[in-house]
């Protein structure tokens, strides 16, 4: 395949790092204390990365990815707290809210033709203002603390709790991983096997040619942002489950990782090229480095420095190879 996606490089790098960290600090392989939370974080941030990836696929950005997660989580908290809905019913309502805010954003972009950067920036501000107002009006300490049945289990259960006869899954893999695997499969299928998915890619690749080939580009813009809101909502849910409460601050830390995971994974800023697996691997890489450095005791302070340098090196190398490829 000629679209060079740095998948093998990423995988190799992750394996090498895991081995290095494991050797330096055998505690790295502790299933309960290290691997389980690491994989849970990877699951959450993979979904965050996917939420950015779907808009990058049409050449747009979503700066409000974190706030959409908070918006969505707010509806989930509301439905548990006020309507006493079961866990998954609340999840559905929250996802609907996320999809709606995403679709609304996409609609504004498609309708006005204003740059997605500006529109999602404005949306981010608006939600940043709106969400705390709701929380202070409806809750005592800016969080919905009601825990619906099943939430604790979802947070703590691993595949070790799923047994077929005597064979049980690994206790290192949290069940929440399934919430990341499901959208990965769905998006993989969307982009590879369906008409709307391919039309998203072509809209990102060349919007004018897409329009002239009969692709409803405006509708695709709405689709992409809708999916972004939906996935952001899912990520918000996962983070809330992992931390135990639905708060206004959910998603605050999403923006940077959302780009890191997707871009490291080979998704193009300009649109037209996505990689679902790449987003997973890119996210995994950043989180493995984070957790590994913590364990080895290098300390959090260097963490972002390394991440930034790796991002720059990876992209420069990629660009360099591409340019050489063009020449030869």
């Amino acid at each position: 395949m000629s679209t060079r996606k740095p998948l093998f490089g990423l995988l190799g790098l992750i394996v090498v790092l895991v081995v290095v960290f494991g050797t330096l600090s055998p505690a790295f392989f502790d299933e309960r204390l290290v691997l389980f939370p690491l994989l849970r974080d990877i699951a959450i941030y993979t979904v965050v990365g996917l939420a950015q990836m779907v808009v990058l696929s049409i050449g747009h950005m979503n700066l409000a990815v974190g706030r959409m997660a908070a918006f969505s989580a707010m509806f989930m908290g509301l439905s548990y707290d006020r309507l006493h809905l079961p866990l998954y019913a609340g999840l559905c309502i929250g996802l609907l809210a996320g999809a709606a805010i995403g679709a609304f954003t996409g609609w504004i972009i498609a309708r006005t033709g204003v740059n997605s950067f500006v529109v999602t920036l404005a949306m981010d501000f608006a939600l940043l203002g709106l969400i705390p107002v709701v929380y202070t009006a409806l809750t005592a300490n800016a969080a919905f603390t009601v825990k619906p049945d099943g939430m604790r289990e979802l947070r703590q259960y691993s595949l070790g709790d799923v047994c077929l006869g005597n064979v049980c899954g690994s206790p290192a893999v949290p069940q929440m991983m399934l919430l990341a695997v499901a959208p990965m499969l769905a998006l993989g299928y969307l982009y590879h096997g369906t008409r709307p998915g391919r039309e998203l890619l072509l809209t990102g690749s060349n919007p004018l040619a897409a329009e002239l080939s009969g692709i409803p580009t405006r509708r695709r813009v709405v689709t992409a942002h809708l999916l972004s809101g939906l996935l952001a909502g899912l990520a918000g849910f996962m983070l809330a489950v992992a931390t135990g409460s639905f708060r206004a601050t959910i998603g605050e830390e999403f923006l940077l990782p959302s780009f890191l995971g997707a871009i490291l994974g080979g998704t193009a800023m300009a649109g037209g090229v996505v990689s679902v697996i790449g987003t997973f691997l890119g996210t995994s890489l950043t989180l493995v480095i984070r957790r590994g450095l913590e364990l080895v005791g290098i300390g959090l302070e260097y963490l972002n420095v390394y991440l930034g340098v790796i991002l720059l090196l990876a992209l420069s190398a990629d660009r360099f190879l591409q340019r050489r490829g063009v020449k030869s």
Partner: peptide, 9 residues
Amino acid sequence: KEEGLFLDQ
């Protein structure tokens, strides 16, 4: 190049 094709596809 600009209107007909998706060059990176």
